[in-house]
Amino acid sequence: MSSDVVLVDAHDVQIGVCDKRVAHLGAGTLHRAFSVHLIDSCGRHLLQRRAAGKMLWPGFWSNACCSHPAPGETILEAASRRLREELGISASCRFLYSFEYHAHFGLIGAEHELCHVLVAQSDAAVFPVTEEVSEIKWWNRDEISARLVEPQVPFTPWFRMEWQRLLSEHPSFDTPALQV
C-alpha cells in the first residue's frame, strides 16, 4: 500500500497527497484518517496498546484500529483493510461521525487529522501485528471510563475525544443489537 496520506481541507475535500511521515512532522498537516471502535456481542470494546516503535504516542492505549486511507481508497475500504492487516479480522464498519483534531506529541510531531469515526462488531479471534500493536484488551464501557481517569494509564488524545463524544452523542453505539 501507499505510504501517502490524503491531504484535505476542513470540509474533507482532497487538496493533495503527502508522505505519511512528513504529514506528521512538526505541527502536522491536515489529512484524512479514521478510527474503528470494535465491539463484541457482549458489548466489550477492543482496545490496543500502540507498539513501542510508533512515531507518535508509542505505548499508549487507543481504539481497536486507526489509520489513513490511501489515495483513491474510501474510508470504509481502508478501515476493512486495516482491520485485516493490524488485527487479522474481517468486520463491516458503520460510519458514526467525523471531527477535526490537532494534537502535538512533544517535539516529535503531531496528529492533525480529519478523522472519520466508525464502529464494527465482531466476535472473531484477534491476531494483532506486533509492528502496530503491543497488547490488546477487551474492556466494557464502565472499565474504559474508569481507566480514562487514572493518570497512570496513557490513552491517545483522539481516543479520549472520541470516547467522550460517543458517550454523549451516540449513547447506544455499543449495544450489540444495534451493531452492523
Rank of each mutant, 00 (worst) to 15 (best):
P71C: 06
E73V: 00
T74A: 02
I75P: 00
I75V: 00
L76V: 13
A79M: 08
A79N: 02
A79V: 05
S80Q: 09
S80K: 07
S80H: 02
R81W: 00
L83I: 13
E85T: 05
L87W: 00
G88D: 14
A91E: 04
R94G: 04
F95E: 05
L96W: 10
Y97P: 10
S98M: 09
S98D: 12
S98G: 08
F99I: 13
Y101F: 12
Y101N: 02
H102N: 07
A103Y: 11
G106A: 06
G106D: 12
I108M: 10
G109P: 10
A110H: 01
A110D: 07
E111K: 03
H112G: 11
E113Y: 05
C115L: 09
L118Y: 06
V119E: 09
A120P: 05
Q121N: 14
Q121G: 10
S122W: 13
S122R: 07
S122M: 15
A124G: 06
A124C: 02
A125R: 05
V126T: 13
V129W: 09
T130V: 08
E131Q: 06
E131L: 02
E131T: 04
S134D: 04
S134G: 04
W138I: 15
E143C: 06
A146M: 15
E150K: 05
P151F: 04
P151D: 13
Q152I: 12
V153G: 05
P154E: 10
F155T: 12
P157T: 11
